[in-house]
Design a binder for these strands. Structure first.
Lengths: 334, 334
DNA sequence: CTGTTAGCGCCTTCAG
DNA sequence: CTGAAGGCGCTAACAG
């Protein structure tokens, strides 16, 4: 037990050569005799040696590793990771996902701290998911997914949040709803602002005034959204439909409606945003606006790889389409 | 742009002190005057300095990072990661997920290579998902999820694969099926062997012989499973039900049935294993055996953390229960 | 062909 | 209270 892992020195000692020679063998550099190579390889084999990624990346600039930085691994980022993993195949790069485990993430600027911790060493480039502040990149290429702002300098990937929100709202309107509530997302993210903008635009276009009491904060988070839903449904004149800024919030809303003894969609229509896999786990299944999340992850990786290869991907701001997915949580008001 | 990230030396220069002093401030060591601390903190702030994880981990033994090593990020591992991320919260540890991007993963022993690359440096402990060879751990605690073998030395987490497979088979049997096919999983994994064992045991218990032609390889993979399903359904005397060793295979089977113009469950019953979120995306929705995947990830992290804290978790081999989830892809044979 | 030297960014003695 | 020196594992010059 606990036999510390073999280092390059152990290999060198075992093979009776210098550390530098071992390094040469490992990296296929010229200038090592066949017999020495043989001996070194044998030692490596015997000791189960594998060069330390850390030591190596401290010394070299390139590591062949791309990082994906997330605050947490939840349904959205997990989908994104699937896409990222798909895109990484065949590129020769490896993927490292770094998650602070929620806590540190609350501090504004987590993305820059992470980036600073990993960049220059360990990763050649990074994808940052839902960053709130985007600092000058430290040399390594960075692509932001669903960033705090419509991006100016940094390449970004997002989806058409505004149009998606309009579509959702129009759907509710067409069903005959007029008292439509909106549970807003994280106010520090552009996506949340655009979803609210889309909601308001669709309402305005239909000539339906937005009751300020029906627009509440949900923060893309379960607990806060549940509270928000509770408050909305307890209003003297409650909404007949709720548009939640993401699926997590929509699911929390459905749970709360159930808790309050209401039937979805008979007593209340609910519509979400994202189309995470979990949205089909609810009963009834959630009607929602789909973002191509996996594709967003895929595109982000592709863009980082392209930049790493010295290319200059042209639209640096990629906006993917959204799409209404009709399921069973919306119906006309009674 | 491209201003290389600040190092501890930049901070030292900016604050007019030595590198060592900065290090002391960062790590809260005694022996620095209040005014110096102030100056150093200001410099850190101004430069946006964050110590390099790599340099740090090379120097120290502890990094406060736990690694999760996977061959790829697909539905199963993604679920597991959600659980792992949940478990990491509040522990003070951070999470790094390392994925080889499919390729390197094909080589046997990827887990040991990764572990060797990262262990001792970068990560304090690791969770390895579906390893095929488990070597002596290099000092750092390692927990294996769904390993190649019933684990002897290494702590492991898995679910009751055998019982789950029995349950699935019994369900098919109770519906009246007799020609039941089995699309097997990755033969290098204990889980796949146990699922097949469970299938055979249930068949034997019901006195139904297993037609060798109806047991085919699927490897837990989509392409191979689709082929397998095709072959099965083209048999002169095709099965009336197919039990696939995981949901990916089951979904591939459903797709193939559809391609061949068959109705599920009318012409063919299909049942899977895992209950990944994707299993509710099929139409009809997939009947399957649920493994508590997130919980497996959670438990694995908890165990690593416990060992890191010097505890000796008692059952070192944790087996979680499985459960039949009845949905819409099974019915009696015509 | 092989070994020696220096240094990546950081932290920890140990002197001053 | 502060700074200089050494070394973590590795690689890139340069010497022999």
């Amino acid at each position: 037990m606990t036999t510390s892992r073999a280092t390059i020195r152990d290999v060198a000692a075992q093979a009776g050569v210098s550390v530098a020679t071992v390094s040469k063998v490992i990296n296929d550099r010229y200038g090592v005799s066949a017999s020495t190579i043989e001996r070194v390889r044998a030692a490596i084999e015997q000791l189960g040696y594998e060069s330390s990624l850390v030591a190596r990346s401290l010394r070299n600039q390139r590591t062949n590793v791309i990082g994906v930085l997330v605050t947490d691994i939840e349904p959205f980022s997990a989908e994104l990771l699937k896409g990222a993993a798909k895109a990484i195949r065949g590129t020769g790069y490896e993927l490292v996902v770094y998650s602070a485990g929620g806590e540190a993430a609350h501090a504004v600027g987590w993305e820059n701290r992470y980036l600073s911790r990993l960049s220059g060493t360990l990763i050649d480039g990074a994808v940052i998911v839902t960053p709130t502040v985007l600092a000058p990149s430290y040399g390594a290429p960075v692509v932001a997914v669903d960033p705090h702002t419509g991006g100016e300098d940094v390449p970004t990937i997002d989806s058409d949040n505004r149009r998606g929100a309009e579509t959702a709202t129009e759907h509710l309107l067409e069903l005959g709803h007029r008292r439509i509530a909106f549970i807003a997302g994280r106010s520090d993210l552009e996506s949340a602002r655009l979803r609210e903008t889309g909601f308001r635009a669709a309402m305005a276009a239909a000539g339906v005034p937005v009751d300020p009491a029906l627009v509440v904060a949900g923060d893309y988070a379960e607990a806060l959204s549940a509270n928000a839903a509770h408050a909305l449904l307890r209003l003297p004149d409650p909404p007949t439909a709720i548009f939640a800024a993401n699926d997590i919030s929509a699911i929390a809303t459905m749970d709360m409606a159930l808790t309050l003894g209401m039937q979805v969609p008979d007593d209340l229509s609910v519509i979400g945003f994202d189309n995470i896999p979990e949205s089909t786990l609810t009963r009834p299944m959630l009607t929602t606006v789909e973002q191509p999340i996996q594709l967003m992850g895929q595109r982000a990786i592709e863009m980082v790889v392209a930049i790493l290869r010295g290319e200059h991907p042209d639209p640096r701001q990629v906006r993917l389409p959204t799409r209404l997915v009709l399921r069973d949580t919306t119906a006309g008001p009674r």
